[in-house]
Design a binder for these strands. Sequence first.
DNA 1: AATCCACAGGAAGCCCGGGAAC
DNA 2: GTTCCCGGGCTTCCTGTGGATT
Length: 411
Amino acid sequence: MDFKTSFSGIFESLVTREPLFVSKEVLRHSYTPDELPHRNKEIRQLALILSSALRNEESSNILIYGKSGTGKTIVSRFLCKELERTAKKMGIPVKTAYINCEITDTQYRVLQNLAECFGEKVPFTGWPTDKVYRTFVESLDREHQGVVIILDEVDRLVQKSGDDIIYNLTRMNSELKKAKISIIGISNDLKFRDYLDARVQSSLSEESVVFKPYDARQLEDILNQRADLAFKPDVMDEYIIPLCSALAAREHGDARKALDLLRVSGEIAERESAPRITEKHVRRAKDRIEADSIVEAVRSLPTQSKVLLYSIILLEERKRRIITTGDVYDLYSSLCRKTGLDILTQRRISDLLSELDLMGIIDSTVVSKGRYGRTRQIHLVVPLVGIRIVLEDDIRLNGITNFEPPQRRLG
DNA sequence: AATCCACAGGAAGCCCGGGAAC
DNA sequence: GTTCCCGGGCTTCCTGTGGATT
């Protein structure tokens, strides 16, 4: 390689390049714009329900359904902000709390988080749950106030820890003397209601609002609105936004994906010092977003899952026949012996495989092979080479690279 | 029709680290 | 220090199962 030609002028190009962005923040998920296109109906519907908090009345609990990237979270947060602002102007005490149940996914932690939102100090573990509950109730009831609690991804919480928390929260009003509480549950799962106990079902979804996926044209409006703020004028071809919208619309109208796509396209173009964003950048952005999320997911896997995944890769490379749970477990065990790691039971491995399946790293289907039993058929759905490198990067997996798996007798 | 394989996946309970309260 | 709680990772034990084989 000729260093003189390849690197000469590198600083000039960095200094003189014109950034395409005015503000990248506008394209991030955390940004809440002043206007939310194509959600007027839902906003009005929800505002009507929540407005009773401003009249110091008990307001209904609400369940919001919709797939990811349909604006559920952003609309709820927007409304809470507005509610608090209006209440402050009117001199009415209203407080809102937002909890993401994907992270806060046990009864204890939800209550602990809520208590902390209201200024209580509760350790993240140690107390009996009912004590945390009491602390929270007392903290709420110290003054007359309306309280709105958003439980985002509430389906995850119920799936993991049952619906006791929801039951307790919805029942809380009968215990409160001064404060009034209402709950907004947000769920990605449209069938979520069916998993709930009948009592909880009726009390949580006194009102329900469905957020339909955006279609390509609506996504375009959203992107246009943000792009005006995010980019300098005239930095992209006019079909870039329709393209991003169309690509995202194919994936059930996920606005978040559309925004990511636009932002990353811009970043790629900027890094190349391109004067404009073109289709080429969008295509590349799409590939990169997909690859990055896989690599990140694999990198953050616990060691045991990494070894497990590594054995799937080795088997996949041999391509002898369809991979089953038993095959993977055999190879996994010998890898563990070689590295000195504990060998987990097949039961546990079965769960880890389900997790990998859920993450979309492998694809597995349970099939029955008659006399030859019931098992999972497994295959990798991510690029083999890429994740192999990520796995071999892990120091703890040292010593298993270039591992020759023992031949397994054929069944 | 009965059998049997190779697991899937539920239930219960253990162990550990983290923490509070006494 | 002892005793209590919580949650996560894990094991043990278990029942269930679809269809080829007997």
